[in-house]
Write a protein that binds this DNA or RNA. Structure first.
Lengths: 357, 357
DNA sequence: TCAGCATCTGTAAACGGTTGCAGCCGCTGC
DNA sequence: GCAGCGGCTGCAACCGTTTACAGATGCTGA
């Protein structure tokens, strides 16, 4: 592999000149620069990132740390960030922390130490200790999905989004509305769920409705969890006429259970999700849309700007939300679900479950 | 930031000893090792990856290059690979090549040169030039989803999987079966589609059925493409009674269109997908299941094994497929779709489209 | 002609590790 | 008593860049 010395020899100049010429610094005669570039091309030379990084202290890489890189939301944001950093010639180092163990290990070992110029934390609610660990890295840190003073962040207004979703249901005439969240079973703290609950609660309070704790179920932010949560709601003496799920994936699970139970959406149950997942349209799910990839990309750019030295590139930004009305929501049926449920239920369990497994 | 010299001074030994002690090499007295480890801990010392990499020539990082890091399949495989490399203390550098331009740029600039110890190519059909470029990297290269002599690979038997899917339909009594593939509009070559077509074709041929080219439509391997492809099939004078989509995402699009058209699945149309997408169960889609994350993880481990020096860790592996029968497939209705279609069609276009946009 | 200056270029010292080689030490066996 | 040996340890070269500094060069104006 050719080194800078080879190029210098071939171009008849010193390594210092090669370095300057190749990086487009000033103070190199144009003719010299051309000779260097030509020599480098002939030798198929590329700088060694390790050597450059050792000399400069910069790595031209940013880390993305996220719990579930494969889930839709995270993958979208990740891809957005990847695009942004790639455009600037940076590399993207991915660190997944899918379990509490992996997470603990990550934050104690900090494998990204001295490996990256910036860190992008994707939907991870940092504990105080974790926050300190990242600050100790001495590189700009940015967050998607949460805020921290002194860190860049791109967020949405979860409270407002949830309020919009539930207000939509209220506007349709629903009065008994379930909430599907996710922090209880989640092995890691997850503030998003709580914030969305607040918004839902406020919407109810505004029309004088109380929060009914038996309608507040845990969907674990997954399809399977959403299924279980919906089953729980259906098994109540007085099931709700509508459900707001704090993520589309939980809503999908809910829809599955409803269909299996022979119930019709929205006649028997209205469902609103959150995110506008790629398949929300396929399942005709009413939801709160947020620009996911854009959030990742935006934060990536903010971090790189900060590296580039632009002052105060590290700000807090809020992305826009949009209610997307599809066909999973409608006016509640006059009769309500309660009477209907008992007849349906017998046909549900045995056959369906077996078929699915 | 503490350097190895600081540790050496503090422990009262030379840097060479620190290096050896910290990496667990032999020839260090246990007492010395403990002193070094203690000193390192007190100083909160971590080795500089750049310096280590410069000295050793290894980076302890592997690259993953993939066209669409955010799509379900890719994200799954990526997460699998990430897990595998993380377990071994390696980092994962992600390179997306979502457009032909990005792809061309990636393969000419090769930003991963001297940055990684191995490369994992995720579902990218390499051109000869691209293959050469990667070989020139002089590090082990592995593929998910395709094969190349001299490279590690983890694949599935696409031909057999497609054969299974179509045979399932034939077994149910279908004779006019559509195929939804994706290489025509894909901006990049995509052999998977062609291979799955072969399998489908063979299944038909085995029972004496011919390949009907008007039933071979392009779904672009996306939900939207699947919708358009299904619309095309429905607009035929003699639509098929069943469709095999080469990916679940296309099948989802097909299901959407069928539902919007007021057609019932599987009575009016059977649909089989491929992949067993996370939401295939939600949509009750019969499909060919493949272990996606496992393929990424397996290949990741193979590459690391090869780095570890284990001879011939670079092999070709084939992952198992499984037909998962859900409720999107059934026996064809006696009447067929053709007569039905005309009455349904009028109610389809105007209202539904508007509602969706 | 020459000081003064700007512009280019080269020298060499970092950057922070790894590792071949040699030296030291305490034993062992003769 | 001493050669031989094996286990530890240190010395110093090296990995491939960047960059402060100094030197060379050519030009300007007096």
């Amino acid at each position: 592999m050719a080194t800078i010395d080879d190029v210098a020899r071939r171009a008849g100049v010193s390594t210092a000149t090669v370095s300057r010429a190749l990086r487009g610094l000033g103070n190199v005669r144009n003719q010299t620069r051309l000779a260097v570039v030509a020599a480098a091309a002939e030798l198929d030379y590329v700088v060694s990132p390790s050597a450059a990084s050792l000399a400069t202290g910069r790595t031209r890489a940013v880390a993305v740390v996220t719990p579930y890189p494969s889930r839709w939301f995270y993958a979208q944001a990740l891809a957005g960030a990847e695009n942004a950093v790639r455009e600037q010639g940076f590399g993207l180092l991915l660190y997944g922390v899918p379990t509490p163990e992996a997470r603990a290990r990550f934050f104690t070992e900090l494998p990204l130490r001295k490996r990256v110029d910036a860190v992008l934390v994707l939907c991870l609610d940092l504990s105080a200790a974790e926050e300190d660990a990242l600050r100790g890295l001495d590189v700009p840190v940015g967050l998607v999905g949460s805020r921290r003073t002194g860190m860049a962040s791109v967020c949405i207004d979860d409270e407002a989004g949830a309020h919009t979703a539930v207000s939509h249901l209220i506007g349709l005439g629903h009065r008994r509305i379930g909430f599907m969240g996710g922090e209880r079973s989640e092995p890691m703290p997850f503030a998003t769920s709580a914030t969305r609950r607040s918004g839902a609660r406020r919407a109810l309070a505004e029309v004088g409705l109380e929060w009914v704790s038996e309608l507040d179920v845990d969907g674990e932010f997954t399809v399977g969890g959403g299924e279980r949560a919906m089953e729980r709601l259906l098994s109540l003496p007085y099931p709700p006429s509508a459900v707001f799920a704090a993520s589309d994936e939980m809503a999908f699970g809910a829809l599955t259970v409803l269909r299996r139970a022979g119930l019709r959406v929205p006649r028997d149950m209205s469902v609103v999700g959150f995110d506008d997942h790629e398949l929300a349209g396929v399942l005709d799910l009413t939801t709160i849309a947020q620009p996911v990839a854009e959030q990742g990309a935006l934060l990536g750019r903010m971090l790189l700007d900060a590296l580039g030295g632009s002052p105060d590139a590290l700000v807090e930004t809020t992305a826009a939300l949009r209610l997307v009305v599809r066909r999973s929501t409608g006016i509640p049926s006059a009769r309500g679900l309660a009477g209907r449920r008992c007849t349906e239920r017998s046909s549900r369990d045995p056959a369906d479950r077996a078929a699915h497994q």
